[in-house]
Amino acid sequence: MRMKLAVTAAMALSALPLTASAEGEVNIYSYRQAYLLEPLLNAFEQETGIKANVVFAKQGLAERLEREGRNSPADVVMTVDISRLNELVERDLVQPVDNDVLEENIPENLRHPEGKWFALTTRGRLIFVSKERVEEGAITTYEQLADDKWEGRICTRSGKHPYNIALFSSMIAHHGEAETEQWLEGLKDNLARKPQGGDRDQIKAIAEGVCDVAIGNSYYYGNMLQDESQRPIAEQVRLVFPNAEGRGTHVNISGISLTNSAPNRENAIKLMEFLSSPEAQRIYAEANTEYPANPAVEPSGLVTEWGEINPDNLSLQEIADHRNAAVKLVDRVDYDGE
């Protein structure tokens, strides 16, 4: 109970300064929600005796690190999406970690080439389809989203959202900019409405008959199934793991980076090692219906009911390298326009 209260208090009082260096402590800046971190950090303190202090924010942590500079109390940043992790690298806010445990536990394509970020969980960018209006097997790849048969039948959130930008970046990596632009134009032509809302809203739109096909992260579907009020909506869609028979389904990540300041560096490394361990991987993945990044850990809980995912093994750093090109394509085809 003491650890739970400490974590909750730190998140609630995120505007208050943390003590930079403190024996037996580690300071975390996080975009991830409190309920996802509490069981992890409880287990970490029980195993190591190290207390974790957390500052939670929906945005602005990179800017905060930049302002604080070498005086920042933050040891690590825990966040979601490859673009946010890559932003930390591009702003030179994080340092490389050369660590045998992390390199053994996290596959090469799910970590920065120089160890500046490491994935902790993965989530598939899936296609959701109406059980009633779309036959099983009617769509099996991302490429087919641009087929004429889906004209006026697809819903997505904004093309500029990081989750979609990462998907579009992966398409560039596989097909090049010219072919991806043509595909993106076809996808836009097939939209049932102007891009809007979040991933859950796309599933709701299918249930409401606005569209028959949508794009979304796997864990949103899982979260809806676990919510009694949203379960009936989620149960109206079928999951499709795109490109499962080919290159594999595009995945994004949650991850962790060691800050340049890291006043409690040794404790921070212990935390990073722990989070990559089988015990922590199971806790973290189950908390948000995600997949473990450590390939030695089998998925568990609700996600096992969906069938095995065949993830695209493309390096996420390569995907991040195409981000700017993807953003330009979204603007060029006016994806978010009427």
Rank of each mutant, 00 (worst) to 15 (best):
R133K: 15
Q281T: 04
H322W: 10
A20W: 03
E286K: 15
Q144E: 15
L187N: 00
K328N: 11
D321T: 06
V26P: 02
S14C: 10
A325W: 04
E298M: 06
R91G: 03
L13Q: 09
L316G: 06
D334E: 13
V237M: 05
E23R: 10
H250D: 12
I165N: 01
L239S: 00
N294V: 08
F168A: 13
L191W: 09
R157P: 05
I319W: 02
L120P: 02
N71C: 07
G24C: 05
P39W: 05
P96H: 07
I139F: 03
H112N: 11
T121M: 07
K188Q: 03
N294C: 08
M11K: 03
I172H: 09
E25C: 08
V330K: 02
A192D: 02
N190R: 12
W306L: 11
E235M: 06
L65P: 10
L316N: 01
H174Y: 05
P96G: 09
K328G: 11
L40E: 00
T259H: 08
P311H: 04
N324T: 14
R70S: 15
K188E: 00
L85D: 01
K188G: 01
G124D: 09
R193Y: 06
L37P: 02
V327S: 04
A326I: 04
P113F: 09
A244P: 02
E298Q: 13
S14N: 14
V76N: 00
T304Q: 11
D81A: 07
G209M: 11
L187V: 15
A293P: 12
R238K: 12
Y291T: 04
D92A: 13
S276Y: 11
A293M: 10
T180K: 09
M11G: 08
I82V: 15
G159K: 00
L13A: 11
A285I: 14
T19N: 11
L191F: 13
P292G: 10
L85C: 09
P96Y: 05
D100T: 14
M11R: 04
V134G: 00
H175T: 03
F241M: 11
A43M: 01
